[in-house]
């Protein structure tokens, strides 16, 4: 195989230039519209930006910069592309098993428990945890704050209505998660929807909160932030971990997504591992 240095330089330059263009795009959006995507993960961002470029009939990032800055409706479409709200009830059942085994006993010793779901999307995770807490007899002493940057998903979360088509999978996840009752007892089926018991959100406050720009608003015994930090680069993850630390009671518990960790951040020493696989940590200093 021959080496072709001219292709190398060209390709490398192309990539570096594109990174600059995407940075210009996020800078422009931040200054013009106030949405801050400047420290979101680059590969993921690039993928979704290109999706929008093609959908708009454009061919360069610079073309999108021009259009987004002058056409608010284009910004709205890009915003939808950049908003990844994938979630599921009892996603990663083993996480809930570990929570029952290792965190519930700790919470039993508290008269009052404050919980924060950061980046709760359409609420599936919140309802799942509410079910678990009810089954463990802890729900009545809990105050749950469920936040997301995206107002539209919060509106859906508040309704507690989910597509019936997902219930089969939810049921098997619920069982695998150590569920103690019958899953269908928690909802009423109506046409193609499952309406969850309103009691599950009695102690839940849904509110908009931006992890990038908003500050700490309370101190918690448990903070969940699952599959949100994967969309942030190292610098932003670091800032958000500081925010969580400032919002965490001593001996409070942090629950991250299965493949997220605090290993590479400066808060690593502030926590001990409760469950390394399930990414459950406990604040110790």
């Amino acid at each position: 195989m021959s080496t072709e240095p001219e292709i190398l330089t060209e390709e490398q330059q192309k990539h570096d230039l594109e990174v600059i263009e995407i940075q210009l795009l996020t800078e422009g959006i931040y200054h013009h519209y106030g949405f801050d995507f400047r420290d979101y993960s680059m590969a993921s961002l690039r993928r979704r930006v290109w999706k929008r470029i093609y959908a708009e009939g454009l061919s360069t990032v610079s073309g999108l910069i021009e259009k987004v800055l002058h056409d608010p409706s284009c910004m709205e479409r890009l915003l939808l592309d950049l908003s990844i709200n994938t979630t599921a009830m009892f996603r990663d059942p083993t996480f809930y098993v570990a929570f029952r085994d290792k965190v519930v006993p700790l919470l039993r010793t508290y008269p009052f428990v404050r919980i924060w779901h950061a980046g709760c999307s359409t609420g599936e995770e919140v309802y799942s945890m509410a079910i678990l807490l009810q089954e463990e007899g802890l729900y009545d002493r809990c105050r749950i704050y469920a936040t997301d940057i995206n107002e539209a998903v919060l509106q859906r979360a508040k309704t507690g209505i989910f597509p019936i088509g997902t219930m089969q999978e939810n049921t098997s996840n619920y069982i695998a998660a150590g569920g103690k009752a019958t899953f269908s007892d928690y909802y009423t089926a109506r046409y193609d929807h499952a309406i969850f018991r309103p009691g599950l959100r009695e102690n839940v406050v849904f509110a908009q909160h931006n992890l990038v720009t908003d500050s700490s608003f309370n101190v918690f015994n448990v903070i969940f932030c699952r599959n949100v930090l994967i969309y942030f680069n190292n610098a932003l993850q670091e800032r958000v971990q500081q925010l969580f630390l400032n919002s965490m009671e001593m001996f409070g518990v942090l629950g991250l997504g299965r493949k997220e960790s605090i290993r590479f951040t400066s808060v690593a020493d502030d926590y001990e591992e409760l469950d390394i696989e399930e990414k459950l940590y406990r604040r110790v200093r």
Binding site: E4, I7, L8, E11, Q12, K14, H15, E18, S41, M42, A43, S44, R46, R47, R48, I84, T86, N227, I230, Y231, K259
Partner: peptide, 28 residues
Amino acid sequence: ELSVDDAVAYSRPSVDVLFESAADAYGP
């Protein structure tokens, strides 16, 4: 990087997603 974006070609993880991002980042 990891993501939980929609499945591509019914798959998550998707080979296309890995290959496309790697091609952009590593080129030749």
